[in-house]
Design a binder for these strands. Structure first.
Lengths: 210, 210
DNA sequence: GTGTGTGAAGGGTTTCACAGCA
DNA sequence: TGCTGTGAAACCCTTCACACAC
């Protein structure tokens, strides 16, 4: 496995290939070409081959890729062959929906902890997990060995939550608050900012010939 | 306004500037430099100036930008000075959370219609909006003049929903299903794929020196 | 003096096109 | 023959650096 810097877009595409491969396997397909895989995600076959080539040579010339083997390789690359402990911070609409959302667990992202500062919400159970007091965050994040924090609080609270989880040793954050977070370089943040996507659609609707 | 092709990343950054400007205005700041705006979103000042320069010259040399005027200009560019009619398709965890999420309405994205095919859910009210029968989708999308469809159904149903809304004349889709959608070129799709973000975090946790 | 607007340079990602192997 | 793996080319986006306006 090369030590070259792999681009974020390559990683994101690997996620897509992974899901496409899952589907192909489920449909009983044992082999796939870069062309076919590309078509499934609306990209080019050269892109698929280049993405995979950063990590090794998984295909057979003239034949394509073995679906099961390739899925396994990608799982290995992405670190999906293990479980990750996840905390959701903020038990509002979004936080609760994520806690109930089954997809995460399926991929090995286990929701171990839900935190909120609203006394009304503390003590409620979501999918068998008790909402805990945000004031105990540091202690509980460490006790539960949380590795990934999902921030689902209002924008004005998001930075202070980020500061706290970074303090507690978290190195990966998924941020649903519509604002940029400032974190040290060893911490990874991914943003799930629905406002940006909606406004991007608004721009294209506004600026396309109707 | 130039007819040059503006990149998606520029548009996404404009959304960020817009939110940063809102905050500055709220804090009573009347002027901002590209340097300061850049710092708020963790990018470079040259990037801010270049992004804005695609659309006009909004700043004053030696002074910076007027916060209110610039916010207004960006609203104009992104098409935020009007209301958009939005439908949510799928009243599961995610769909319901989005319907209740206040941020959309604030920015002019009005949820006019919620659809689901589950008889249990049809007839329920979410924030004063009745969940309607998915079988009436075509008719209702047109009647309510829907312009943007939010797809919040399971992956295996997402493509058929996309086909239907495209058929009904929708040209903008926000897709929460963890799969790629195939649509004609005149239709814009944005993906809000939490699995990809989580897996990207997983990759970086796995491949960083602990 | 200060900070914008922008051509040019630089860097990175995607596409091309083909050698090489099953 | 068919499809991968990959250098080279093309393309796009970001950063630099400075003329210029306030």
């Amino acid at each position: 496995m090369s030590k070259r810097k792999i681009s974020e877009s390559t990683i994101r595409r690997l996620s897509k290939y992974y899901r496409s491969l899952e589907r192909l396997i489920q449909e009983g397909q044992s082999t796939v070409s870069s062309e076919e895989l590309a078509a499934m995600d609306g990209i080019t076959s050269a892109q698929v081959r280049k993405d995979l080539s950063f990590f090794g040579t998984f295909g057979k010339r003239g034949l394509g890729y073995d679906t099961r083997a390739l899925k396994e390789q990608i799982a290995e690359i992405l670190g999906l062959n293990r479980k990750w402990n996840v905390a959701i911070i903020g038990a509002g609409n979004i936080g609760r929906a994520l806690a109930k959302y089954g997809e995460f667990e399926k991929q090995g992202f286990q929701i171990k902890l839900i935190l909120d500062s609203d006394p009304e919400k503390i003590g409620q159970e979501i999918r068998g997990i008790r909402v805990e007091d945000y004031r105990k965050a540091r202690e509980l994040l460490q006790k539960e060995n949380i590795e990934i924090a999902i921030i689902a609080v209002p924008a004005q609270a998001a930075q202070s939550v980020a500061d706290l989880v970074v303090e507690a040793g978290i190195r990966a954050i998924l941020n649903f608050a519509p604002c940029s977070l400032h974190v040290p370089p060893h911490v990874q943040v991914r943003n799930e900012n629905m406002a940006i996507e909606m406004e991007s659609l608004s721009y294209f609707l506004t600026n396309s010939e109707s």
